[in-house]
Write a protein that binds this DNA or RNA. Structure first.
Lengths: 225, 225
DNA sequence: GTCTATAGCAGGATAGAC
DNA sequence: GTCTATCCTGCTATAGAC
């Protein structure tokens, strides 16, 4: 959206603050660092936002939430191109919106880092994140998938599945360095596309979706309920 | 392991530092806070560890890694009780070791928070985490599951699946508050046990494992509940 | 709206007595 | 090994000139 430096101080502060908070976290970033990066004066944050915490909240309100709406729009846009999308189309559209479309690489890293920080160490901003984005996102997907399931479907299980899809998407983005280290595999475009394939396949068929192969022993299953 | 306050200062410092770092992150915790919590003197950290960063690293070396070994041992212990465990037994044992066994609630929260911080914002400690724990963990599971798959199995897909299992386990632990908020469901023991069931079922059959319901697109799977 | 200057405090680290 | 006292740096926030 606003990749080149915006012409007004307030927006430059928001942009640089978002980048730095995402990279290092709230406590590890100083207002000196932000104002220097935004090429503005030390006092600018207090003038425009009152204090550092309020700047942090404004980042969520004015940058994070709008971008999340962009992801949602991209997701719905992709889906509407398909006539009669099935569940796997939805999962793919969802994963793609997060991992490939809708954002530049830097925006994505930034976006997911901020979200994750709020999930793991909530501040006031977590209320914005949950009510403006996570809850609607769950609602969207649930209502899209539900029609293709029997009416007797267990809603709790469906919601847990949606969380699981989200967990994979987030993990493969934020834990990139570790994934690369363990797999000895650069995170290039080809690999990312295979990761999305994996997420779709794992969501549809679990571990047995591997290569379309069925688990040999998976045929006999004793479920302890 | 050492729930009551250890009698020597060094261990008390390590214990309290771990708790605080896990709760708030490295930058947000002051040495004053740690020494006060450990009921020791302000100068104690510098005397015993040289500086704050080295204390952080020592927490990983002396507390986090040993506990991770404990989880691994618990996992292998559970498995060895089963004769001829299948893939779902392994996944269940793995999820259980992380989410129910091996640790007290506080230790678990602490353990996973520290790990997640290193995944999202790596410091020097990430090398310890990956080489001492994540890589061996992947090796364990991969070699346990592989025999039940055809020799032609795609190793990359298998590794991605293991990451997916880990991603769910981590997510349902660290994003507890959000899960509770969205589902309007307290995270009690019963719910946690349902979450483990979900992880196993999702890993085995994906989203169609819900309620043992057959895949609506026709790829039917034998299921005995 | 932007800048300089500075208040006022909390941070990590250390020296040296015991 | 532990404690007190203290240094110095860096922090947020503000007051007031322009």
């Amino acid at each position: 959206m606003t990749n080149p430096a915006p012409d007004n101080t307030r927006d430059r502060l928001l942009m640089q603050a978002e980048l730095l908070f995402a990279q290092k976290g709230f406590a590890a970033v100083s207002v000196r660092e932000i104002t220097a990066a935004a090429d503005s004066n030390l006092a600018a944050i207090n003038y425009h936002f009152g204090n550092k915490m309020n700047l942090y909240l404004s980042v969520f309100k004015e940058r994070w939430v709008p971008r999340a709406y962009g992801v949602r729009k991209f997701f719905k846009g992709t889906l509407s191109e398909k006539s009669n999308p099935d569940t796997s189309d939805m999962v793919r559209a969802f994963a793609t919106a997060f991992l490939e479309g809708a954002m530049t690489e830097d925006e994505r890293r930034c976006h997911i880092n901020l979200m994750l920080r709020e999930l793991t160490h909530p501040t006031e901003a977590v209320n914005i994140v949950v009510s403006e984005v996570i809850r609607p996102m769950h609602h969207d997907i649930r209502e899209l998938i539900r029609p293709s399931l029997p009416e007797t479907v267990n809603l709790e299980q469906l919601t847990l599945s949606i969380f699981s899809i989200i967990s994979m998407i987030l993990y493969f983005e934020f834990a990139r360095p570790v994934v690369s280290l363990v797999m000895n595999q650069e995170f290039d475009l080809q690999f990312k596309s295979r990761v999305i394939d994996h997420i779709v396949s794992f969501t549809m068929d679990g571990i047995n979706g591997i290569n379309g192969i069925k688990d040999i022993r998976g045929l006999t299953k004793e479920e302890t309920v």
